[in-house]
Amino acid sequence: MERADTERTIRVLVAKAGLDGHDRGAKVVARALRDAGMEVIYTGIRQTPAMIAEAAVQEDVDAVGLSLLSGAHMHIFPEVLRLLREKGGDDILLTGGGCIGDEDMAALAALGVGRLFGPGASTREIVAYIRAEVASRRAPT
């Protein structure tokens, strides 16, 4: 059945970057996105920027949700964004979460990274943001 572009199922890659081993937060987000009707490609822990960008391209996702705790966000987010663009995925939304200060958030936003969520963010907020942002990117300009 043919469907309008705006109705297509939203696909999101959820990855956990950095060396720390646990991925509870990423899994909670993955399940929330699934419960909101999205297809979540879950790639697991210890993903490098190159792996994340390549998987996002192979899976043709609308968004990448990146979870990291390790404090390497000023390296990892820009690197994923650069690699996504290099691979032709400049229309893919890059969002995520971690303990990121306001100043860093502003700097990342200036580079083109989407909204980043702190540890206290509700999954409902994250779902609503991804849905709205993907819809606006899909809408014909």
């Binding site: 699934r34 999205m38 979540v40 190159a50």
Partner: peptide
Amino acid sequence: PTSPFTGGAVLGDRVRMGDLTL
């Protein structure tokens, strides 16, 4: 499988194939 209740899915097969990604 897609969840029959929400229409969403968590596709986790890549977790075991991580080293093939690059």
